[in-house]
Design a binder for these strands. Structure first.
Length: 462
RNA sequence: GGCACCAUAGCCAAGUGGUAAGGCAGAGCUCUGCAAAAGCUUCACCCCCAGUCCGAGUCUGGGUGGUGCCUCCA
């Protein structure tokens, strides 16, 4: 039985989907105006792990992720420039070109990190009509009102506002850091639809003239369309708790009068050198940048899996080095199990399986699950262990099946290099170490290192 | 100022009240012409103080420190 921490109750709860055997989940996706950085990606790795655990437990998944390609203002003060518009202006491309480009990069990143895409990917600009209908419904029910620059949600009509973040709005300093829009009934009222300013680059016809949707309405409209008024899980980063998800709840529940999401599950932030990631500090690394520095994307995934999703994770290159070594050793340890014909004790296998399953079902305790894997790998060599590790990998997504044999690896190495290595092996057997060392240098010149093993040698890329 | 979370070895990091998972680094050993790799062994009493309890890293209270949010942000 899966237990999961619900932000709504601030406690671990037993997970029970609305429909037996099926889980409907909405995950906040990216605003595609820039490259995703490792902090963003940590959250998607968390989402992926969650989805994999659900699958592992036998649930059928219906997941939706949005791609925000419009209507995300730079500021929550309901003015300020739309992110897409800004990127568009700066890069001299149409917003659609911007969105298309960064969406593609985003998907490439996901795939490099073994993050499975949710079943449904929903682009905001494909759903403007749904959003307009949603806004109309809010207006009809009296939960929204129109002022000069747009349609606003009236949080005064929704007394439960703040229940997710447990913020007391009255205690917040109204307007302290946000300029008060004098026409708004409450400073925290937020735009569900904005009327287009002159020359605004993205705009659509609506009952209120040309305009564009608010950010929050996007997720509400699309989740409702694909998952219904009430669904099981909503994921995102912790930063979304106070504003974005609070607003979604307000919109959804005002409209339907029902609790819209049963489990709100949030991934914690990633820190860099114990501090916040920000572009101004220049520490928002991308997958491509990690690759340039010699870290395979899956090393980063492994790094993330080493920490619990609800704990802040401190990113350092020292930590990445550790993850790299660790991950590579894990794979090479698995070689040996893969080739061994010996059987393992069934009880032992089952005991490890149970330990692993218990860990992942305890609020996705992947760090502990990794510990189980390491203990397993250190047992006597056996193909049963390899097979069990592959089972674990359905959840971990670390491509553990890529563990290669020395024999298999040779196939990828140029024949001439193998020939030199063979010559060297002979020289070594005849104790002609001078020749042996010369040949090793030749191999190195070809870009490979030769490592002696018990009964021969192994070639690796230098 | 308000809210929340966190504080475990050099580093990353698990931990359900009963005497500290795992990884990296380090140290020692084995193997070894050299080098590397690999294998084995080793390495913490859990920020401070006061409580509750037979027993606390694990609960309560108080400190101290850190981080995040309260502007867009995963």
């Amino acid at each position: 039985m899966l237990k999961i921490y619900n932000t709504l109750s601030r406690s671990k709860e037993e997970f029970e989907p609305i429909k037996d055997n099926q889980v409907r989940m909405y995950s906040c996706g990216p605003t595609v105006y820039n490259y995703a950085h490792i902090g963003n990606l940590r959250t998607y790795i968390f989402m992926d792990i969650f989805r994999r655990v659900l699958s592992f437990d036998g649930y059928k998944l219906k997941g939706v992720m949005n791609i925000t390609d419009v209507g995300h203002l730079m500021s929550d003060s309901d003015d300020g420039e739309d992110k897409m518009a800004k990127a568009s202006r700066e890069q001299h491309k149409s917003p659609y070109e911007i969105a298309e480009f960064y969406t593609k990069v985003f998907f490439d990143d996901l795939s490099k990190l073994n993050i499975n895409r949710p079943e449904i990917i929903a682009k905001a600009t494909d759903h403007i009509g749904d959003m307009i209908k949603y806004v109309q419904a809010l207006l009809e029910k009296g939960f929204a009102y129109e002022i000069e620059d747009g349609i606003y949600f009236d949080i005064g009509k929704f007394p439960e506002y703040g229940k997710l973040s447990r913020l007391n709005l009255d205690e917040q300093q109204a307007g302290a850091r946000v300029e008060v829009n004098s026409q708004k009934r409450h400073p925290a009222d937020f735009a569900v639809w904005k009327k287009a300013e002159k020359g605004h680059i993205m705009q659509w016809d609506s009952p209120w003239g040309k305009g564009y949707p608010g950010w929050h309405i996007e997720c509400s409209a699309m989740s409702r369309k694909y998952l219904g008024e009430v669904f099981d899980v909503h994921t995102g980063g912790v930063d979304h708790i106070p504003v974005h998800h609070e607003n979604e709840i307000a919109q959804n529940e005002a409209l339907t009068g029902k609790k819209s999401v049963n489990y709100w599950v949030h991934g914690e932030f990633m820190l860099v050198d114990n501090g916040k990631m920000s572009k101004s500090l220049g520490n928002t690394y991308t997958v491509a940048q990690l690759e340039e520095r010699g870290y395979a994307p899956l090393v980063f995934r492994y790094f993330c899996l080493n920490a619990h999703y609800r704990k802040k994770l401190n990113f350092t290159f020292e930590g990445m080095d550790g993850a790299k070594t660790s991950y590579e050793r894990l794979l090479s340890a698995l070689y040996l199990h893969k080739t061994c014909k010996d059987k393992a004790d069934e009880k032992m296998i089952e005991s490890y399986r149970k330990e692993f399953v218990d860990a992942i079902n305890d609020d996705l305790n992947v760090p502990m699950a990794l510990g189980v894997l390491w203990k397993l790998v250190k047992e006597n060599k056996s193909c049963d262990i390899y097979n069990l590790a592959l089972d674990f990998d359905k959840v971990l997504g670390l491509s553990l099946n890529t563990a290669k044999l020395a024999e298999e690896e040779k196939l990828d190495i140029p024949q001439e290099v193998v020939d030199i290595a063979e010559k060297r092996l002979q020289a070594k057997k005849q104790k002609d170490f001078a020749l042996s060392d010369t040949l090793r240098a030749e191999i190195l010149a070809q870009g490979y290192n030769v490592l002696d093993t018990k009964d021969g040698y192994k070639l690796v890329k230098a």
